[in-house]
């Protein structure tokens, strides 16, 4: 560094460099911020060194250059660097630190975004839990009750839709298989709504039962369901009984 500094009193960090980017003079502000260094490159973050090497040339225009500096306090400081070449071997450089507002705002945005993300995540977890519960309810809405030696009574509860049938189907078929059942009585007394896809799946379940050699009987059909179930009767020759009592009587299970 030269003995008489021309930059010392500059109110901003300022440097004088030679064409190899060696520091030949600096302002007190610069020294306070960065300490004493031999080269501009020593002040810079590794990701900014190539940029500085590339742009600090006498023939390059003097547009401001954004660079990251390493401060004495080990922080990274983003700054606009303005420069003017005095001659081919000397350049004056003024460093204008960027205000940190944009970083702060960006950090706030990140926090907000994270919170949104967390809320989303909680909602998703809640949804998964609800779905699990719903599935359990579905599975419980077709208890298989053994009556007599080879008869199974299956009262269906709630709405009849494809999800419900999917949920109870394998359970029913397993039960029928394991208990060596001859007749499966599906009681619809506690059934509420019947969806179109529910009827289709119900039909395929009866088909499976038939293949397993099991007779399916439907009972407890309400007037509002009769129309929807009508075609089952024709298409599958399913047996319908008006009440559970009449089924049990016909099977000689009650007198």
């Amino acid at each position: 560094m030269t003995s008489i500094s021309q930059l010392a009193e500059c109110p901003l960090p300022a440097l004088k460099l030679d064409s190899n980017l060696a520091i030949t003079d600096c302002s007190k502000e610069a020294e306070a911020l960065f300490g004493r260094c031999a080269s501009l490159l020593d002040l810079l973050d590794s990701g900014s060194q190539n940029k500085a090497r590339h742009f600090f040339k006498p023939d390059k225009s003097s547009a401001a250059l954004e660079l990251n500096f390493k401060t004495l306090t080990e922080e990274l400081l983003l700054a606009d660097v303005h420069s003017r070449w005095e001659s081919a071997s000397a350049v004056n450089v003024i460093i204008v630190p960027k205000d940190n507002r944009i970083n702060e705002i960006s950090n706030q945005l990140i926090t907000l975004r994270k919170r949104l993300n967390d809320t989303n995540f909680d909602l998703l977890r809640e949804k998964e839990r609800t779905e699990l519960l719903l599935q359990q309810v579905r599975e419980l809405s077709a208890p298989c009750i053994k009556i007599g030696r080879q008869q199974l009574l299956i009262p269906l509860f709630g709405d009849l839709d494809s999800e419900k049938i999917e949920a109870v189907r394998s359970q029913i078929l397993n039960e029928v298989y394991e208990q060596d059942v001859e007749t499966a009585i599906i009681d619809l007394t506690a059934m509420e709504q019947i969806a179109a896809d529910g009827v289709t799946l119900l039909e395929s379940m009866f088909q499976s039962l038939r293949i397993m050699g099991v007779e399916g009987i439907i009972t407890g059909v309400k007037p509002e369901h009769a129309k929807q179930l009508h075609f089952l009767k024709d298409a599958m020759e399913l047996r319908f009984e008006s009440s559970l009592h009449s089924v049990l009587t016909s099977l000689n299970l009650v007198k």
């Binding site: 190539n50 940029k51 590339h54 742009f55 250059l65 954004e66 983003l78 960027k98 944009i102 960006s106």
Partner: peptide, 12 residues
Amino acid sequence: WENNIISVADEH
């Protein structure tokens, strides 16, 4: 950014 075409604000 390294080519001094954009700034950190643009990166945000």
